[in-house]
Computed example of a mutant assay.
Amino acid sequence: MTKVTFITPDEERIEVEAEDGVSLMEAAVNNSVPGIDADCGGACACATCHVIVPDSFKSATGTPSEDEESLLDFLDNRQDNSRLSCQIEVSSALEGMEVVVPEEA
């Protein structure tokens, strides 16, 4: 199990223990993290699981695919470290990561 903290738009900190191999989005949904709607169920088709990854974990979360980049481009609140949590696989490399769930633009 890997501990990850989600920081919601109202600055609530929700620490979850996620099973390695699941997506970060699944970990959020399974723990009722506000702001992670996951409307498409993790199919990289909606961008309702948008998170901001800290610089220190950018390499551990991998590089966004072309499809993910396309969806992120439509977001008004996109940042350099924006990712779709459905595209990030939980592993021990993410232990202690704190991701921000941005306000909807």
Rank of each mutant, 00 (worst) to 15 (best):
Q79D: 13
E95T: 11
G62T: 08
P34W: 08
T63H: 09
E19P: 02
N31I: 04
S59Y: 11
A18I: 06
S82M: 01
D10L: 07
N30L: 08
N77G: 03
T61L: 06
G96D: 09
A93K: 07
A105M: 01
R13W: 10
T63Q: 11
N77E: 13
V99I: 12
I88M: 03
C44L: 10
E103L: 13
D73N: 15
S85G: 03
G35H: 06
C49H: 04
Q87G: 06
A38M: 12
A105P: 09
E69A: 05
N77F: 11
I7W: 06
V33F: 02
T5N: 12
N77P: 00
T63F: 11
V22S: 05
L71Y: 02
E12K: 15
V53C: 08
A93I: 05
P9S: 14
A93G: 07
C86P: 11
E95V: 11
S82N: 05
E103R: 14
A43C: 15
V99D: 02
L75S: 00
R78T: 06
G96E: 01
D37P: 00
L24Q: 01
T2F: 02
T48P: 04
V16S: 06
E95G: 08
K3P: 09
E104W: 10
D55Y: 14
A28D: 05
F57E: 07
E68D: 04
V16T: 11
V29H: 01
S59N: 12
V16M: 08
C49Y: 01
L72W: 00
T8A: 10
E66K: 10
V100I: 15
G62H: 01
V53P: 00
E15Y: 15
G42Y: 07
D55R: 14
A43V: 14
G42N: 13
E26S: 13
G21L: 04
P102H: 07
I14M: 12
C40I: 09
L75T: 01
E104D: 13
S23H: 02
L94T: 03
V4P: 02
E26F: 09
S32E: 10
E15Q: 14
K3D: 15
S91Y: 00
R13A: 15
F57Y: 15
V90M: 04
I7T: 08
C86H: 07
K58L: 15
G62A: 13
D37K: 04
N31Y: 05
D37A: 06
F6T: 06
A27H: 04
D10F: 12
S82I: 02
A45Y: 02
S23K: 07
L72M: 05
E12T: 12
T48Y: 08
G35N: 08
